[in-house]
Design a binder for these strands. Structure first.
Lengths: 183, 183
DNA sequence: CGGCGCATGTAACTTGTTACATGATTCC
DNA sequence: GGAATCATGTAACAAGTTACATGCGCCG
């Protein structure tokens, strides 16, 4: 049983270009931030395991130095493993939204508290939405006949749609809480 | 450091009515399914810990029997703990959507495969949306001047908005993949 | 040469899932 | 009495986070 997806994050990114563990982490944080995350504690051990299983290969430059950048490349075996995973059914995601838990139980507390939580939730997602919009613009401006960013733009579009839904809900719910407030 | 929220799920539900561990699990599965989940492996030990800390109290009927239903009640101490948590800032959620990971890396595979994934994703969320709609109707029909389901209806509304966004994205992305297909 | 960002790594820990064992109750 | 479902519980495992240790390389 290997349920962790870290493996495929690595293989997927390496299928585009050779990277170090540090670079993988940076890309996941910046590009996947709104739908995925990985920690060093998962990444580095997994890189070693994948190298050992020859799904990726390591290039260790600077002979003789104790530590140095290790850049990883995907192997043919790794590409196959990635393709197999891509073809397998998507596993149902498990989301945990603390804000809904609090909303569900908020009967006992003052509406202003919940209103504040929702305002903060809205602001933080508005920020993330702004970042997605910027990233989208960036990709669109670079686009030409040869580059194919379609898939990435689709992923961004998902985030935009969902975050808009979040923000709409926040607005609506704030109004509801204000009406409850008046009682 | 106690980051687990299981504790508050229990306290929140017990603040409405006394329940057994089994009943809590059922409620979480049915009512919170779209934004939360708990397993017995978390629930039962946590119930014991909370009872030991006197945030809840257990009623063990049927003296002399090896096993029997244990119904739990929230205590004043438990109510306070719940209220404190409700007032604390909401922690930023971490979502993991495998479908976006696959979409991001789908360049290498045939568009039909991704299209199939998206169709399945759409169908399963349409089903969940139908269930939310039903639950909403149920609550609205029962509603009278005395019952206050507003907070629960807000939570349902969140699910409806987000799932609609999911399904919209699926439609749009299917069309995009079909256009890519034609090349 | 001091600080900062790049870079790798891991040990200790917490969190969460799964599979299984067991008993109680209900309904046919 | 047998099947299904209600109900409790836990051991073994898998997954994921955090905090820390270490060293490199560049810039002012």
């Amino acid at each position: 049983m290997n349920k962790s997806k870290t493996k495929f994050v690595i293989l997927g990114l390496l299928s585009e270009e050779a990277l170090t563990g540090y670079e993988i982490k940076k890309i996941v944080d910046m590009r996947f931030g709104f739908f995925w995350n990985e920690s060093y504690g998962q990444l580095y051990p997994e890189l070693k395991r994948l190298a050992q299983k020859e799904l990726i290969s390591a290039s260790k430059p600077k002979e003789g130095s104790a530590r140095g950048k290790t850049r990883y490349f995907i192997t043919q075996k790794g590409i196959s493993a990635l393709e197999i995973w891509l073809s397998e059914p998507v596993e149902t995601e498990s989301v945990r939204l603390e804000i809904l838990l609090k909303m569900y139980f908020s009967n006992g507390i003052k509406p202003e508290i919940m209103k504040k939580h929702i305002t903060e939730f809205s602001i933080s997602h508005q920020k993330q939405l702004d970042m997605l919009n910027m990233f989208q613009q960036q990709l669109l401006s670079v686009e030409d006949l040869h580059s194919n960013h379609g898939d990435i733009l689709s992923v961004i579009d998902f985030g935009q749609k969902v975050y808009k839904a979040y923000i709409d809900w926040c607005e609506e719910t704030t109004i509801y809480l204000e009406s409850r407030d008046e009682k």
